[in-house]
Nucleic acid binder design. Sequence first.
DNA 1: CATCTGACGACCG
DNA 2: GCGGTCGCCAGAT
Length: 113
Amino acid sequence: MSWDRVYRLVKQIPRGHVTTYGALAKALREPGGARVVGYAMASTPGGQGIPWHRVVSAGGKIKMPEPHASKQRRLLETEGVDLSRASIDMDRYGWVPRRPKPRKSKAKNKPVT
DNA sequence: CATCTGACGACCG
DNA sequence: GCGGTCGCCAGAT
């Protein structure tokens, strides 16, 4: 799993919606790589059009060192996401990332069956 | 090449 | 419902 894949998925998040690190990881078939996704966000070059603020932790809660947390909340509110609750209403704003294309590493020709 | 860290997730108390 | 611990994968040193 490369971060590049994560970035690509995050960029697909529609405005006004959010997803979770785990959801992205699962979308990439890496259920245990949730932290890798988060780490990828932390490493976001910035200015690359990557809406990292649309990515929250499981349950729709924002967990991250300030000042990013505050900034994320403000950005989400700007997109119309209701942060009034203790956690974001994933049932309402939760967006499920699509499978980009589960490429099996190399385009290895499958020997005729 | 081996070891530590890290925008996390799930479970236990 | 909240805080602490272990496990997870990939990168950086």
